[in-house]
Each structure stands twice: as C-alpha cells, then as structure tokens.
Amino acid sequence: MGCASSKAPTTRSDIRGVVRREPEAGPAPVPRVKLVLLGDSGVGKSCLVLRYVRGQFDPNSKVTVGAAFMSHSVHLPDGTTVKFEIWDTAGQERYASLAPLYYRGASAAAVVYDITSKESFQKAKHWVSELQKNASGDIVIILVGNKTDLVELREVTPEDGQEYASRNDMLFIETSAKTAANVSEIFETVAKKLSGYQAPPAEVVSATN
C-alpha cells in the first residue's frame, strides 16, 4: 500500500521484492526493485551498470571490490516508474561465498557473461544454478551476453545463450556496454516482467537480434 500510486495500483502490487518505505516520503512513492549482477570477473558487469546509470563507458574501468551499490529509476511505457537498487558484485573467486548476501532478497538477477569467452558462459551457468538453488523462488533472472562489439571474437553464439535461457525459464539479451546497445533494455525487460507487464517471449528475443 505504501507503494501504491494513483495510476496503476493493481500492477504495482504485483511487483515482488518491493521494499516499502514510509508513505510520507513523497507524493508518489516509487517501488524499489533489488537487482543483483553476477558473473565472472571481467565480463563487464560494472561497465553495464555505469553505462546504464551514468551513461559512461570507461575502457580502463577498475576492478570492482566487494559490491558496488547504485540506484536508478526506469520509466516504463505504461507510465509507471520503478527504482532499481542495483548491486554490482565483484566477479572474483574470493567473493563467491559472499554472493548470498547480495542476492538475498533480490527480486531480479542479471547473470552476465562475455560472448567472447566460453569460460565466462560456463561460469554464468554456475551462477544460474546457484540462484535456482538458493535465491528466492520467484526471482527473475536475465541472462546477459555482453561485448557484442567484439563480435569477431565471439565464442558463444546467441543461439546457445537463448537455448540455455529458455531451458531455465530466464530472460535473455545480448548487449554491448561499449556501444550502449541493449543496455537499458536489460533493466526495462526486467522491470516489465516484474511489474506483470506481459512481455511475450518473442519480444525479448527480438531485442537480442
């Protein structure tokens, strides 16, 4: 109820994992969605977030230590707004045991791999199975193949990604933080799915191609 807005109260109540805040905080409290980014180190998780939140791309971006926290609001086509609380986790091995701290209570997870690295795709599968085992049952997972700008070095085909995503009931998208291709679509797709906005699977697929 705290997150109800005058516009579409029914769809809003569908949003899972919403953190309800004091209603007096603003005229139209925005539902918050916790989204966690997981994936091997160096696949570009931070680059995706920084591209999305700040519109920046730094080719020499720094290795993330621990987890970075950022928030950003998405305006959906139906006029609703969702505030993402984005947890950009470090991909290093040493942080693996801490991941539950970050994905606990998350309503969405973006599992990122690098399309030029089969190994990172394997790692992504590992994260997916960990999420399926340990995260809340209704978590929305989106599989993200990043670095489409390096298509000539591609090792993981879009079909592989799509096939794996479909099999595990996940969303799928291929992006490039460098060219900004499909970056905001990650968050919009997730927001739509969360808010019950019926996005036919076909639409998601079309976003990847």
């Binding site: 720094k62 230590v65 621990g66 926290f69 950022m70 950009d88 470090a90």
Partner: peptide
C-alpha cells in the same frame, strides 16, 4: 587505493 569505491558507494568484506 581501491578505485572502484570512488565510482559508487560500495560494500566490501
């Protein structure tokens, strides 16, 4: 000395 902390608020063990 950890540059990623400058980019956004962070948590770290």
């Amino acid at each position: 000395s950890t540059d990623s902390f400058r980019q956004s608020e962070s948590f770290s063990p």
